[in-house]
Amino acid sequence: MNIFRLTGDLSHLAAIIILLLKIWKTRSCAGISGKSQLLFALVFTTRYLDLFTSFISLYNTSMKLIYVACSYATVYLIYMKFKATYDGNHDTFRVEFLVVPVGGLSFLVNHDFSPLEILWTFSIYLESVAILPQLFMISKTGEAETITTHYLFFLGLYRALYLINWIWRYYFEGFFDLIAVVAGVVQTILYCDFFYLYVTKVLKGKKLSLPA
């Protein structure tokens, strides 16, 4: 465990908590893509099945449980408790265009052709693109609440920190996981446009709105 990995995990946790608190405090999930949140719940579910088969550390197990629980809580708030505020008309990304190719790819390109490993690979690939419905929604409405941009910033920062963690681990531990690295690079690239807007607009106190 190096500092980049730890701050990456904490950044991920911060993103998840920010989103939950935003929805809970405002009693509204306006501007949030339920589809992205469903995909993240699927990502955590398929990745953390190893909770049943292997124990790595107390830290590892507790973080996994927290991520899974929070992602299900978020989906519950969006689709059940605050369903009336869910902006389904703008959440129109076709998730089958992500899930089907990602599912196929995880069968073709994986470390080991076993059920658990294929599901892990599926979750890694799916996570890299799971934010697309949310970004699509923002591009459609042309704006995002500031708190939503903080959520996206920490979510993007997490994978960027993991990239540095992988460089670190390659040099100091000889660890290299091509699947995770390639997917992590793709995932981080998807946030670059958003990072630019976040730094140039949100951090200067302006609301994130896109030109019409």
Binding site: R5, D9, H12, R47, D50, T53, S54, I56, S57, N60, M63, K64, Y67, N110, H111, D112, S114, E117, W120, Y162, N165, F175, F176, D177, A180
Partner: peptide, 10 residues
């Protein structure tokens, strides 16, 4: 890295 050993990252 042996895949069967599991993944230590989140």
């Amino acid at each position: 890295q042996e895949a069967t050993e599991g993944h230590d990252e989140l």
